[in-house]
Nucleic acid binder design. Structure first.
Lengths: 355, 355
DNA sequence: TTGTACGCGTTATCAA
DNA sequence: TTGATAACGCGTACAA
């Protein structure tokens, strides 16, 4: 009634437990006849290795933990694909920990659970996707010796940083807004992400920089609040009504999609009445109506790169952080300014006076 | 340079390892002064429990493995939320294994890795989301004693089944199509899921049953192939062109969304020119253009129920499978037949939710 | 209230 | 080519 152990197998096969272990891990070193007897015994008993005992003995778990802030965000799946490919090539199992959206109170407790998971040695290392909280880098935690390594995908805050894989978020946001400016837009709003999120700050900075480079002054009333969720994209529609920008740059695609459906229902047409740019190029961005102009991050590549960095750290090296290129994907949601002569007049139209 | 062990802590605190262990697990049984000394030593050393040793000793891992076929499918995130809530309430950590879409060859190997993971005792039990492959129920696997229990969310195939949590997929599909019939539609097409998927068969059966109950004969040329992906929804548009149904029932929302954008681009308006029903009520279904009529499954509840079943099995009980109710959510993508006399019947037609 | 000592199931070292 | 045996780090009777 209890799990068979290596000892049960050994007894049935008439060999020592050492031989059984060898059959499982270095088969070619044991005699063919013996091996057969052992493997038969394995089948007969339904034996499976006890991972706890193996980990205890080998001092590693052959597992990598990937911590995701919101698994419902389709942005992450391709990253996971890239990670898994590299992980399994290296003989590691990829396990995912979902902390849940950070606006729900539970997320903190969950993330702590995964921190402990790693610290307890259940994983040999961790990959953190987007905005890990400070607990991962706590002094009392990190000053201990022999801790499992961490690689972050996306940049981390001001804390002493781990190795990182990211794109230039500020530069990408700047490119997105510059695209709108090139189309002739002058009143461009930005719908930001959740406060305290580092991506929010970077994308906002890029938005402001683009305006500045075009000689325009960022207007605080055109910086709308948001939280990366569909609902805040819908809410942005009211602000759009009040402030009438001719274009909006959203800090992510999901909010842009929320805006699109609300605008459609209200009879506001995109891009005729307003141009929209998102960020992330999620799965559904190509199937919005209209399809969404957005920033694409090399997701699979980001995951694979991060996993390779982690492996190299596990191998004793000390790799540097990596920055990957992004793309501005121009689709149907952006066009010239509403009055229709934006494309022609845009060179002539003088920049807003400064000061 | 090596991880501190309980012994290091004991030495520094000047107590035995037993006392350290007690401080960590039954603090109230040790003297306050001693406890303080020990906790100080813990902080000082940066000690963390060794999960492998603990698991080995306790013969359990306090972990539940959730296996997801495609984490990019937003359908799963709420299920995971329900699971996690129950799991952490019971002191278990939820870990997710992503097998990847089954049309990619790698998925098989990944799933095997998670089977081993469970068999090796790294998790105390597993929750399988949607269409687990046979490996989970293999005879050589399951006949062994003391194996960790499994609960499946969604039904499983013809194999000897584990405990299951599901909705009545056939009934739900039938309700969806009956809704279309009540709106006056007579040429109703179905876009199916991937072959060999059990949900595909059940939803197709429900589609046929609804037609049959209305005295109509299912037409093979109105049963379009699909694979649950956006692209196959787009592809369905060509078939729609050729066969001109007045309504389509998709086996999931993602395909419906692919159809919507293609139809829009081609100037076909929904629901004026064609009515659309999806299945799942994913996150974006409310933000499509138009919003999507679909079948909602009680996702969070399904996850929570499954987790509770697993816990009860772990507690030595033998619970029965559970069937949960679904809802037909009527939104903007369905209306009367194109000639315009279906609109009146719409409100009257919504079938009651079924169990 | 605390300490001693055994065993959980493996892997790896050393002999044979 | 195989076997005996010592760790690996922890929890828990049992004894003190």
């Amino acid at each position: 009634m209890t799990r068979p152990t290596i000892e049960d197998v050994a007894r049935i096969a008439g060999v020592s437990i050492a031989t059984v272990s060898r059959c499982l891990h270095m088969p070619d070193v044991v005699a063919v006849k013996t091996r057969e007897r052992v493997l038969n015994a394995v089948r007969q008993t339904g034996y499976n290795l006890n991972a706890a005992a193996q980990s205890l003995r080998q001092r590693r778990s052959n597992t990598v933990l990937v911590v995701v802030p919101d698994i419902g965000n389709t942005f992450f799946s391709e990253i996971l694909g890239g990670i898994e490919t590299e992980a399994s090539a290296a003989g590691l199992t990829m396990l995912i920990g979902d902390t849940g959206r950070s606006d729900t109170g539970r997320s903190r407790a969950r993330e702590d659970a995964y921190v402990r998971y790693l610290l307890n040695g259940r994983a040999d290392g961790a990959l953190l996707l987007a905005d890990p909280q400070a607990a991962w880098f706590d002094i009392p935690t990190r000053n201990a010796v022999g801790l499992p390594p961490i690689v972050a995908i996306s940049e981390v805050g001001p804390q002493s940083g781990p190795v990182t894989v990211s794109i230039d978020n500020e530069g990408a946001a700047c490119a997105a807004v510059t695209h709108l400016i090139a189309l002739g837009h002058r009143r461009i709003a930005h719908v930001a992400g959740p406060q305290s999120n580092i991506l929010t700050a970077q994308r906002l900075a890029g938005y402001r920089r683009a305006l500045g480079e075009a000689g325009m002054t960022p207007a605080p009333d055109l910086e709308f609040p948001g939280d990366f969720g569909l609902a805040s994209g819908r809410a942005a529609f009211d602000l759009f009504r009040d402030h009438r920008p001719s274009a909006l740059f959203f800090a992510n695609d999901e909010m842009a999609m929320g805006f699109l459906s609300t605008a459609y229902a209200a009879g506001v047409r995109v891009p005729r009445d307003v141009s929209i740019v998102g960020f992330d190029d999620i799965h559904f961005a190509q199937s919005c109506i209209p399809s969404l102009t957005t920033i694409r991050q090399p997701r699979s590549e980001m995951g694979a790169t991060a996993m390779r960095l982690l492996l190299s750290i596990l191998a004793g090296q000390a790799p540097a952080s990596v920055r990957l290129p992004f793309d501005l994907v121009i689709r149907g949601s952006t066009a010239g300014v509403p009055d229709g002569h934006g494309a022609d007049t845009r060179m002539a139209s003088s920049p807003a006076p400064r000061g």
